[in-house]
Computed example of a mutant assay.
Amino acid sequence: MQNILIISGHPELTHSIANATILDEVATALPDAEIRRLDWLYPDGKFNIAAEQESLLKADVVVWQFPFHWYGLPGLMKQWLDEVFVHGFAHGSTAKLRGKKLILSFTTGAPQEFYTVDGFFGHAIEEYLIPFKTTARLCNLELLAPVYTCGISYADRDADKIAQQKTLARQHASRLVGMLKPFVNKTEGE
């Protein structure tokens, strides 16, 4: 079995519907996966860099789970990336992450149709992923296909909307687990 590490970058999981549901579903389906909820581990925003780097070193597959924030990582996860993915560890001649797989798993508030050339934002969602592709290349990570779900908005959350978001989140988690399952049954070096 390969080691799976999931980094949750949601800044406040206690206020989350989709990301919290995704993490709960994945934890149930893949109990051996390590899930690091940054907001719970570091409510003061002061990371234990050694612990974070050690988790990354043990992992074969790394998942970044987050809500798309201003077309990128939320502040907490960006800070984590800045402080943990330093030269000499994540990139450079003594980099240690080479060959690990990276999966971006995220939710957006805006609906899918906004993320098209003719949509409200004027860009496909894949265009917003260029910095992630560049980060993966710099760190010699193999970036796999992203798993994302659009239309998970915080606006107007009535009971029906919450139920719909939980359904979308469960479907998202199912897709993510489907991507991760082959690694669960795979031995290292295979």
Rank of each mutant, 00 (worst) to 15 (best):
D44N: 05
V63T: 05
Q2V: 10
I103P: 01
E126H: 08
A124M: 07
H91L: 01
S55E: 11
V117W: 04
Q171P: 02
L180E: 07
W64C: 06
Y42V: 04
I7Y: 01
R157I: 13
D39L: 04
Q2D: 09
R157D: 11
R37D: 11
A27M: 11
I162P: 07
L76V: 09
L141T: 11
T14D: 13
M179F: 09
D158H: 09
A145N: 13
D118F: 05
C150T: 15
A29I: 06
F120L: 08
A51S: 11
L180K: 06
P43W: 10
K166Y: 03
S105G: 03
G122W: 00
V117C: 01
R175L: 15
I49A: 04
Y115W: 08
T107F: 00
H87V: 12
A27C: 09
L129Y: 12
V26N: 04
A169H: 05
S8V: 15
T107C: 00
E127W: 03
M1R: 11
K58L: 11
G99Y: 00
A59W: 05
L138Y: 08
I17L: 08
D44V: 02
V84H: 06
K161P: 03
K78Y: 02
I125Y: 07
Y42A: 03
S153G: 09
L5W: 00
Q171M: 13
P146V: 08
G122R: 00
H69M: 08
A51W: 00
T108R: 00
C150S: 14
K161Y: 11
A159S: 15
I152K: 08
P31V: 11
N185G: 13
V177P: 06
T108H: 01
T135A: 15
G9N: 03
L73T: 06
E188M: 06
H91W: 04
R175D: 15
V177H: 05
G75W: 02
T134L: 14
P43I: 14
S105E: 06
W80S: 06
G88S: 02
A159M: 11
L141D: 10
T135N: 15
G178V: 13
P43V: 14
I49R: 04
L5Y: 00
E83I: 08
K100Y: 06
T94L: 09
I49T: 09
L138C: 12
F85D: 02
C150Q: 12
S105C: 05
L143R: 07
A18H: 04
